[in-house]
């Protein structure tokens, strides 16, 4: 009885693995069929084969690499600056009451404004320069990381701080070692959220006017009615964002090294 039950359970498990492996090819196949059947307009809804050709062409001409680098450098640069600022100010507002009184009300007012809403003023301030794009990404990342750090710092085990006080820990070491490492599990969650946010804001930044980048390529392709290229761009953006999130998750796991 029990043996039979177990083998049927393992059969179910095997079946679900099989279904999972076939899921994407199956949908791609159905998409190919529908796009080729003439039910839909193939110009607006090209089959995956057309998308694949567009992607290969994109890579072959060398444009893909340039676009990738342009987008990656905006995301990485904006993330680094925003995250560093968010962590530093988060530790200070979380731990030093005077700094918190000074900055927290301001940050809480600015934080809920979607970064995309800043596109018009960013264009006024920075034109179409890289600085403006960096600004948007930094803006999106900063508040997320700041809030996570601020909350994390306040949740640091008070006993750890007392123990460190009793051992004569000087104030700078208290902030940048005990408090920051104590808050690290929260900070990494904030950083991971900020990875996705940096991609959202990248879209806004590149749509606002740029000369290279994955989202720029999508926009140009749209204007030329190259739907296959548009979809190829979306796929590239999705893949890039996915890889960034996964690799950050692995990194975050290692960052809290003592667990």
């Amino acid at each position: 009885m029990s043996v039979g039950g177990r083998s049927s359970a393992s059969a179910t498990a095997r079946l679900s693995v099989l279904v999972a492996v076939l899921s994407v090819p199956a949908f791609t196949g159905v998409w190919e069929l529908i796009a080729r059947s003439g039910i839909v307009n193939a110009v607006l809804f090209p089959p995956p084969s057309t998308v694949a050709v567009a992607i290969l062409e994109w890579i072959r001409t060398g444009q893909f690499f340039g676009d990738l680098m342009a987008s990656l450098s905006r995301v990485a640069g904006g993330f680094a600056v925003g995250a560093a600022g968010g962590i530093v100010l988060g530790v200070l507002t979380g731990r030093v009451r005077l700094v918190s009184s000074l900055l927290s009300p301001l940050f809480h007012i600015l934080r809920p404004i979607p970064p995309i809403a800043f596109v018009p003023i960013v264009i006024l301030w920075f034109g179409l320069s890289e600085t403006g794009k960096l600004f948007l990404v930094v803006w999106g990342v900063f508040f997320t990381v700041w809030l996570a750090t601020h909350i994390g710092v306040q949740k640091v085990d008070h006993g750890l701080i007392r123990a460190a006080q009793m051992l004569g820990t000087p104030q700078p070491q208290m902030l940048w070692e005990i408090v920051l490492l104590g808050a690290l599990p929260y900070v990494t969650v904030g950083l991971r959220t900020a990875v996705s946010i940096s991609f959202y804001t990248l879209v806004a930044a590149e749509l606002a006017g740029s000369f290279a980048g994955i989202v720029y390529r999508i926009e140009i392709a749209q204007q030329n009615m190259q739907t296959g290229q548009v979809m190829g761009g979306l796929a590239a953006l999705g893949l890039l964002s996915f890889v960034a999130d996964r690799s950050f998750a692995i990194l975050a796991e290692r960052a809290v090294w003592w667990r």
């Binding site: 007392r162 123990a163 460190a164 051992l167 004569g168 820990t169 000087p170 070491q173 003592w258």
Partner: peptide
């Protein structure tokens, strides 16, 4: 001071936990 809970620094090894005070 020794508290009811050990309150060891979780990110430090036993050795570094004990060395924390002299370092500080």
């Amino acid at each position: 001071m020794v508290f009811q809970q050990p309150h060891l620094f979780p990110w430090k090894s036993v050795r570094r936990n004990i060395a924390h005070g002299p370092r500080a």
